[in-house]
Amino acid sequence: METKKTQKRNTIIYWIFTLWMSLGMVSTAVVQLLRHKDEVANFTNLGYPLYLMTIIGIWKILGVIAVLIPKFPLLKEWAYAGFFFVMSGAIISHIIVNDSFSKILPAVLLFVLVIISWYFRPVDRKFSVNH
């Protein structure tokens, strides 16, 4: 059983990491949707088609909306799963093409933010089959 103090601490951790994650997802989505030259070079280096930037960019924005809006815990689980897969896929892709750690670091940071945000989410933002 969590104490009020622990719940408050966890809520603060959740919101700090969730807002940081959301900012990171939205900012990278915008760069992808605008097809910034550095991001185009990045996707090309990874061997991905450029239309994937649009798909991932839109899904990141929709995922952030799903995580931030109240209620809809199942939708939040799907959004976190999507973030988990896209960021772990980015990390693995960078490793496969032998990118430097500085190229991998942004994906690692977002991946860690996703995990921390998911772990510390409040009870009312968790999906439970006992609803």
Rank of each mutant, 00 (worst) to 15 (best):
W78N: 00
I95V: 15
L74K: 11
S27M: 13
T18I: 00
V67T: 05
I104M: 10
T18W: 03
T18R: 03
T44V: 12
L105N: 12
P106N: 07
H36D: 15
D38P: 11
F17Q: 08
R35F: 11
G57W: 04
F84C: 08
T6P: 03
L33D: 10
V129S: 15
N10M: 05
K71F: 07
I56T: 15
I61C: 09
I13Y: 10
I13G: 11
A107D: 05
Y119P: 10
G89L: 02
S102P: 01
I16S: 11
N10W: 05
G82A: 04
R125Y: 06
F101C: 12
R35C: 04
N45C: 06
T11L: 11
I61R: 02
G82R: 01
P70M: 01
P73C: 08
F127D: 07
F43R: 09
I12H: 09
I116A: 09
I96C: 12
T6S: 14
D99S: 14
I95Y: 11
N98H: 14
M87F: 14
I116G: 05
M87D: 03
D38L: 14
R121D: 02
A81K: 04
G47T: 01
R125G: 02
Y80K: 01
L50N: 10
I12S: 11
F83K: 07
L52T: 04
K76W: 01
K126A: 07
N130L: 13
G82L: 00
Y80R: 07
L19M: 13
